[in-house]
């Protein structure tokens, strides 16, 4: 079986993963592998019914059109009976199963080591190439300005503890707070369509999800009418689907605004690049205790840094500042 000509442009075709393993029976038309081009991630169907004898390309490999990627033993030429398909294909993921380590996989690993020694340039994945192009275009063409503030994280901490033993995703709070604030600041939902500014009616907040395969945005719809628990469940389910390579989850669904959270690292605050065509992006830092003055007294309070990057073509400073203040009020109202 050869790699079909599935790239609409001259993009390289990257093998993402096999959906079947050698030794398994396959049917003509059955999706057997997932590939990625610069335009889309898609499943490739088997061209014949038979037994998958071996695979000749591995996840992460860039494969040329017409290159042999698998060897099939056709059903009508098979000597013995074809075993029925395994109920759960233990998909060939990045790490080869131990039983295969002596064969092609070992050769491939050796080749990878050799490539490293030869200091070959790193090949960008198609998705990273796309992310890079979009970010470069955003940073170069959108006049960003940045507003930085912080909010008390105490109410969120209390609310999160109340939800124990199942801790909520922190992002759930911020998604809800941003969604509620957006209701009062319609212009933050505006986007350019050509020269015209139109109000998006999608009522969704995006959460940047940096999984090993690439950077994706999880879209949470109508978050202002959902509880943090519901939003948290939705985010976690979406991350799982993204990591499992669910093509539908990976399809782009442009939200009104995106939030990006590096709080799990030791980042206090940062400024993010707007995800076009949105008007703003909210960057969330780490929650940490800080000394604050309350009614003349210095007290210790957990706080979180919030930095809003805004498109100056769409809104001016005062409006964006009022929007960020509204987010702070919502964050402190849990």
């Amino acid at each position: 079986m050869k790699m079909p000509d599935l790239a609409a442009t001259d993009s390289a075709i990257k093998l993402i993963r096999w959906l079947v393993v050698p030794g398994q029976a396959v049917k003509r038309g059955q999706p057997v592998l997932v590939i990625e081009t610069d335009k889309a991630t898609m499943e490739v169907e088997s061209i014949a019914t038979g037994l998958l004898k071996e695979v000749r390309a591995l996840p992460e490999d860039f494969v040329g059109v017409g290159q042999v990627i698998a060897v099939l033993e056709l059903a009508d030429s098979a000597s013995g009976p074809i075993p029925s398909p395994a109920t759960t294909p233990s998909a060939l993921t990045r790490e080869p199963p131990p039983s295969q380590s002596g064969g092609l996989f070992a050769r491939n690993r050796a080749a990878a080591a050799q490539r490293a020694l030869a200091r070959q340039p790193v090949v960008l994945s198609p998705i990273q190439r796309t992310v890079g192009k979009r970010m470069q275009s955003s940073k170069q063409t959108i006049p960003h300005f940045y507003l930085q503030t912080s909010a008390s994280a105490e109410p969120m901490i209390v609310r999160r503890q109340a939800a124990a033993p199942k801790p909520l995703a922190w992002d759930a709070f911020f998604v809800r707070a941003v969604s509620k604030a957006l209701k009062k600041f319609e212009r933050m939902c505006c986007r350019f369509e050509g020269d015209e500014l139109v109000v998006s009616e999608s009522d969704t907040v995006g959460v940047a999800a940096d999984i090993p395969d690439g950077l994706y945005v999880i879209a949470i719809a109508a978050a202002s009418s959902k509880t943090p628990e519901q939003i948290s469940d939705e985010i976690r389910a979406a991350v799982q689907r993204l990591e499992a390579g669910d093509l539908e989850a990976r399809a782009a669904r442009p939200p009104d605004i995106t939030i990006t959270n590096l709080g799990a690292s030791k980042v206090e605050s940062f400024a993010a690049i707007i995800n076009p065509p949105e008007a703003a992006i909210l960057a969330i830092g780490k929650i940490a205790p800080a000394a604050v003055v309350q009614e003349g007294q210095v007290v210790v309070q957990n706080r979180v840094s919030l930095t809003l990057s805004v498109d100056h073509r769409i809104v001016n400073g005062r409006y964006a500042a009022d929007f960020l203040s509204a987010i702070v009020s919502e964050v402190e109202a849990f």
């Binding site: 599935l6 609409a8 081009t37 889309a40 898609m42 499943e43 093509l247 539908e248 399809a251």
Partner: peptide
């Protein structure tokens, strides 16, 4: 739409 379109929409 074409063979290169996975039709995910």
């Amino acid at each position: 739409h074409s063979r290169r379109d996975p039709c995910g929409y």
